[in-house]
């Protein structure tokens, strides 16, 4: 069923526009070129952010941080094995996916750690990337409380992912 969501959405949007006698193709072309402009406005933020993340990873800082955070994670009820995932999740979507996949392979896809990693990936976003994209495009310099509130939502997500996995899939 989920296989057809995207193709059916594409068809329905075009068909309904045609029914209203709109020039569906031209409208889409216009939208696509707007998308391209949007991409150009995002690109600089993307380059800078990934540069920082790559440096952090290469320096070994990410590993040191996750080792240091182990006691705190145990306190929050988050499996300490997922520390690295929790750290990279707000920074880089592709890095988080790689770390999560590694956890699933290492501990088993149906293990507590593997499932917790999957729920974390499915219920959180790449917070810093999203913030930089939105505020960058809108020309915002003073972000006020957006970052703490978004990080709080992430923290709730990480704790709840661990808790719901324990509840739904007890070992």
């Amino acid at each position: 069923m989920t296989d057809y969501i995207v193709p059916i959405l594409l068809f329905l949007a075009a068909a309904m526009a045609l029914r209203r006698k709109e020039n569906a193709y031209d409208v889409m072309l216009q939208g696509a070129s707007e998308g391209l402009k949007l991409l150009v406005s995002i690109l600089p933020a993307l380059i800078l952010l990934l540069t920082a993340v790559y440096m952090l990873r290469a320096s070994g800082a990410m590993e040191l941080l996750s080792q240091g955070l182990r006691p705190l994670f145990a306190l929050l009820g988050i499996p300490p094995e997922t520390a690295m995932l929790v750290l990279v999740r707000p920074l880089s979507g592709s890095a988080a996916l790689a770390v999560g996949a590694d956890l699933m392979a290492q501990y088993g896809v149906d293990s507590q750690v593997g499932r917790t990693a999957a729920v974390m990936l499915g219920s959180t976003e790449t917070t810093f990337y999203t913030i930089s994209v939105y505020f960058g495009a809108a020309g915002i310099r003073k972000t006020r409380y957006a970052i703490p509130a978004a990080l709080f939502a992430d923290l709730v997500g990480f704790c709840m992912a661990s808790l719901t996995t324990r509840l739904f899939f007890p070992e």
Partner: peptide
Amino acid sequence: AGAICLWSGVGKLMAVCGI
């Protein structure tokens, strides 16, 4: 790039067709 352009196009289409 492909996905962003495609979905911007579809988004524009949705706005036009009343969804």
